[in-house]
Design a binder for these strands. Structure first.
Lengths: 140, 140
DNA sequence: TTACTTGCAAATGGTTTGCAAAGGG
DNA sequence: CCCTTTGCAAACCATTTGCAAGTAA
């Protein structure tokens, strides 16, 4: 029940917000605003795209979503999980798949000491060509 | 002499391109198109901003520049160096400082085996608040 | 000469915003 | 009821593009 989550965060409960969170859950992947928009359209729901933008921002500001990366001017998000993840991004089709490993905590601590930064987050992305795109390339 | 570099890469040598590369060298940091534009303006040079965009792309496509990251819809570049770098980005002022450590080659190899991806690059960013912005925050 | 580059102005496209109407508590 | 959210249309802004004139080789 997402209404509990919203109440917890002091965000007013609306049909749109519930529907948006359910859609994001169903997507079950790193997504952008257009992914939500298309998914809603396919299920015969109409939410204005600016409403989606506003709420994705609200969710982000309230730690419900993580901002994963920007690729070609498009911002990608994911439902915030307890598990800390990194990503592998195909430079051909922009498929984004999450990884498990994170050997960076120690490096992060040292970095904070050396630079005086308060480290808030880190972002590790690998870019390459996925097996499918590799195959397509050879076919050309 | 940047004309040699351009010749090497089969890019036509123009005054603008030389000037752009010199400006980038003088900047000596991770930069965006506007950084170049402002630096030129301060030195009483006029190059149209679309020319800068076009040439930054040309340099990028010819491995003269690396694309470092996108922050708030703005693309950041750096002169391609032999040394592989990662970055620390202030979430308040967007200052970007390069790091030295890269413990990721081994992880990258394993990843390639597991996923079938041809890994082309990786990108490790730490985000946090720099000492200066930390101070400003307290002053408010 | 001949193709590539440049400046200018307009278009593009993801994202944001102002405003009036609708909805939540 | 008051304040927030929503839909709509327009604005925003970094970046791209079409075109005519200029320039490198």
């Amino acid at each position: 029940m997402y209404s509990n989550l919203l109440k917890e965060k002091n965000i007013k409960i609306t049909k749109n917000r519930i529907l948006l969170l359910e859609t994001i859950e169903k997507l079950n992947k790193v997504f952008n605003v257009d992914d939500i928009y298309e998914s809603l359209k396919n299920n015969n729901h109409k939410i204005n795209i600016s409403t989606i933008y506003r709420n994705v921002n609200t969710f982000y500001e309230n730690d419900i979503l993580d901002k994963i990366t920007e690729v070609n001017g498009i911002i990608y998000y994911q439902l915030q999980k307890e598990t800390h993840l990194h990503y592998l991004i195909c430079t051909q089709c922009n498929q984004i798949i999450p990884l498990k490993e994170c050997p960076l905590e120690e490096i992060e601590n040292n970095l904070s000491k050396k630079t005086g930064y308060t480290i808030e987050s880190h972002n590790l992305e690998f870019r390459g060509i996925c097996p499918k795109c590799n195959k397509n390339k050879k076919d050309i």
